[in-house]
């Protein structure tokens, strides 16, 4: 009897650990996407509904290049570059044009763009899932569960890139101006921050992060044209829950939204996981309309 209980406990700990790992991995990717979104939203107050499709384009860039025999790690960079560049084009052609109207046009236009991109990719490559093989197979085993090497590396890499973005924001001139713009656009303009250039840069950076995240996630998720929708919803939920105050908030929100969804999926079901996430966001918005991490005076602490 005692023996059985011990075995049971061991199995549970192993499972728990494995699920914790899965959740961490999901959160790291979500945080990457959400931070990209946060930069664009926070800096420009532009709601880019096509952000999920940028993620999707990153994944397809990875798949397409990989199928042509190009090195996986190079493709990660290529995806960031390609999607970042695409973001610049979108900013020039659409966002900048509508920015001055100051109404819902940008949201609507990027919503249209998201459908356009999604269906365009569907026409080009079909709706069936594309498989992206990761550069590693197998992985270490712990308490009876295998931890895929690639998933470990992807998680670490995601956190590393997040850290790099944080450093960029806290230690560089660009970051200083960006933070000023986020906290007080009028003030930043008065301090002679070149807003046009800042906007283009932040849009490029946000897009590149989405593209990179998509490429990084490609071996872990099913790559289909409609994959972006889930991610843009999650990422915006993160921003709503956390508040648009700081990068830390985006990371914290990702932990809540992504962590809950991954955990609930593991113990019950994916659809109900998403339903509960919506319910949680609904309740949190009622309790903290401005976001969990937007307590006054605690923004952008160095």
């Amino acid at each position: 009897m005692g023996h059985l209980a011990m075995m049971f406990a061991a199995v549970n700990t192993g499972l728990l650990l494995k699920q914790l790992f899965n959740a961490t991995s999901a959160v790291s990717l979500l945080a990457l996407v959400a931070i990209g979104l946060f930069i664009i939203f926070g800096m420009m107050k532009v709601i880019n509904m096509a952000h999920g499709e940028l993620f999707m384009l990153g994944a397809y860039t990875m798949w397409w290049l990989l199928a042509r025999g190009i090195n996986f790690w190079l493709n990660l960079l290529a995806a960031a570059l390609v999607v970042g560049l695409f973001g610049v084009i979108v900013e020039r052609l659409i966002v900048q044009r509508l920015y001055v109207r100051g109404d819902l046009s940008t949201l609507l236009a990027t919503f249209g763009l998201s459908i356009l991109l999604q269906r365009g990719v569907a026409i080009a490559f079909g709706d069936r899932p594309q498989f992206v093989t990761s550069p590693f197979t197998g992985g270490p085993t712990l308490l009876g569960n295998t931890y895929p090497t690639y998933q470990i590396i992807a998680t670490v890499l995601a956190f590393a890139v997040i850290a790099a973005v944080v450093v960029l924001f806290l230690k560089t001139d660009f970051g200083l101006r960006a933070r000023a713009t986020i906290v007080n656009p009028a003030m930043a303009a008065a301090l002679a921050v070149n807003t046009v250039r800042m906007n283009a840069l932040s849009f490029a950076l946000g897009s590149a992060l989405a593209g990179f995240a998509g490429a990084l996630a490609a071996p872990l998720v099913s790559v289909v044209p409609a994959m972006g929708l889930d991610w843009v919803i999650r990422a915006f939920l993160v921003v709503i829950v956390a508040g648009a105050g700081s990068i830390w908030a985006a990371a914290g929100g990702a932990a809540i939204v992504g962590g809950w969804e991954a955990g609930f999926t593991a113990i019950y079901d994916a659809t109900y996981a998403q339903i509960t996430v919506l319910a949680i966001v609904w309740a949190l918005v009622l309790l903290r309309p401005r976001g969990l991490f937007s307590g006054t005076g605690r923004r952008w602490r160095r």
Binding site: V239, W282, P289, R290
Partner: peptide, 11 residues
């Protein structure tokens, strides 16, 4: 609750 305007579109 007057949250971010994007909430309604997104939710």
């Amino acid at each position: 609750a007057r949250t971010l305007p994007v909430y309604y579109a997104l939710i």
